[in-house]
Each structure stands twice: as C-alpha cells, then as structure tokens.
C-alpha cells in the first residue's frame, strides 16, 4: 500500500524540539502562506488591484481638480498632493478592515494548540505593511520617472507620521476585533468608520484651504493629523497649521494600549467563537 511507503520516507524527517519563538515563527509563516493564497491567489489580479485602486482614485480626483482649474495646491503638483493623502488613508482603511476580521477568518485554525489569537493579527499586519510599502515605493518611483520631484523632503518625518498612523490603526483594529467577538454586528462599524473618514481626513484638501475658524470641525481626527504631518514632511513648501505630533502620538498611544489590553483580556473568548 502506497501510504506505508510514504511513511518510511517521512520518518527520515526529524522534527527537532522547537522553542516558543520558533513555534510562533512557524505559525506566522504558515498563516502568511494561507493568507496570501486567499487574498491574492484566488484572484490573480489581487496585487494589480492593490496598486491600481489608489491610482484610479487619484486619477479621477485629479481630473475633477483640473476641470475646476486647479493644477497645484500650495505649489504642490496635484497628483503628488493627492497621493500623499490617499496612500496613508488606504493603509488605514485596509489595515483596519483586515485586522477587525483577522481572528474570525482564521478561527478554525485556532483549535491547534500552536496557534494563538494574536498570530493571525500579526500575520495580517505584516502583509498589509509590506503591500503598503511596495505600493508606496512603486507609485512614487513612477512619479519620479515621470519627472515629478517625488523624493520626500523629510524622510524621517514621513516615516514617523506613517508609523504613528500604523500604531493608531493597529490599536483600533484590535479593539474592533475584540468587539466582534462579543457582538458579531460590530463588524459593520468598520465600514461606518472608514467611509465618512474618507471625506474628512484631508485626502483632497488640506488645512490651509479651510478658514481657521472651522479647523475645530476636523482637528479631532487623528487621521487628518497623520495626513497633514505626512504632507508637512513630504513637501518643504507646505507647512501644516493644524498637524500636531503630540496629538497624533497621544491618540496612537491610547488606541494601541487599550487595543492590546482588550485583546489580551478577551483572548480566551476567541477560541470559543
């Protein structure tokens, strides 16, 4: 019988005792292979859409802007201006959607003792960040090739603003993930949060275009701050009157620590979902 022949082959493979860290690496690697296959494998255009979607949105808005006769904002070419707002917002939206469903989508696999609830979360963070980085670098390389000045003036500032935005989003994602374990309909909040934020996060406008007496309507929004600070760092020509490092850091810290705490306290629940 053929399966007995295989069994002899198998016994040659000796599995060493692994440390906890190695087990976690193995689990995250296994989850990553699985996630990549479901996200990009079934639809072979998956990676194409990750790049094409923000480009298409920027193109449409760029056309609208040029129809109303604007080619630049604060001396920044309109395409660069839109990309520097659109890409961080895409990161926020995608990461939040992916994280809030991370545990739910993998709950069948939590019955293996090696897999804990945080593993699918870490896996999805890695996938989203790598995708974001690739898309960001690709789009801006093409922009540079087209003759735009696409190298950020303050790389460190751009990285800091992005990192703070990521920390904030991960915290919010963990909170939503936990909320879904108590109440399944909470997944509807993800769309309810991201949709309206698209219009008030300064993707197609910036603070200097708004009269100062109305800033208070927008400046509670940490994503608005993240985008303002990204642009502030990216373009020397633009100085954000609103973007506050302190406020964004504060939001990131509060969101991340409460997200981690809630997730840790409810880790038992995820297994019994």
């Amino acid at each position: 019988m053929s399966y007995l022949v295989h069994s002899k082959e198998l016994q040659k493979i000796v599995v060493q005792k692994r440390t906890s860290r190695q087990i976690m690496f193995d689990v995250i690697f296994a989850l990553m292979m699985r996630e990549l296959k479901t996200r990009f494998g079934n639809n072979r255009l998956g990676y194409f859409w990750a790049i094409a979607e923000p480009i298409a949105q920027v193109m449409i808005m760029g056309i609208v802007f040029s129809i109303i006769g604007r080619n630049s904002v604060s001396n920044i070419p309109i395409a660069l201006f839109l990309f520097t707002g659109m890409l961080p917002f895409k990161l926020f939206g995608n990461l939040l959607t992916q994280l809030s469903a991370a545990v739910d989508a993998n709950k069948g696999l939590l019955s293996y003792r090696q897999v804990t609830a945080i593993d699918p979360v870490i896996t999805r963070i890695i996938i989203e960040l790598v995708t974001f980085l690739l898309v960001y670098v690709l789009i801006f390389s093409v922009m540079a090739w087209l003759g735009f000045n696409a190298w950020p003036d303050n790389v460190l500032g751009l990285l800091s603003a992005s990192t703070l935005l990521i920390i904030f989003t991960v915290g919010l994602g963990l909170i939503l993930c936990t909320a879904i374990s108590y109440w399944k309909d909470a997944s509807k909040f993800t769309a309810m949060i991201t949709r309206p934020l698209f219009f008030i996060s300064g993707i197609f406008f910036c603070a200097v275009m708004i009269p100062p007496q109305y800033w208070h309507l927008l400046d509670w929004n940490p994503i608005f701050h993240a985008i303002e600070l990204s642009r502030d760092s990216f373009f020397k020509a633009y100085e954000s009157p609103v973007g506050s490092w302190f406020y964004l850091s504060f939001c990131a810290l509060v969101s991340f620590s409460s997200g981690l705490a809630l997730f840790h306290l409810s880790r038992q629940r995820f297994i019994n979902l």
């Binding site: 599995v15 692994r18 689990v27 296994a30 989850l31 292979m33 699985r34 296959k37 293996y112 090696q114």
Partner: peptide, 19 residues
Amino acid sequence: QGSMTARENVRFVARIHGY
C-alpha cells in the same frame, strides 16, 4: 478551515508542526 482546500489545510498543519 472550510475556505481552504484539503491540501492547504495539510500544508498548514505540517508547517505549524515545524516541517
């Protein structure tokens, strides 16, 4: 996991056991 094929499930289990 229902959304994965049997082969993917087997691969997953093998990987988390360190193969």
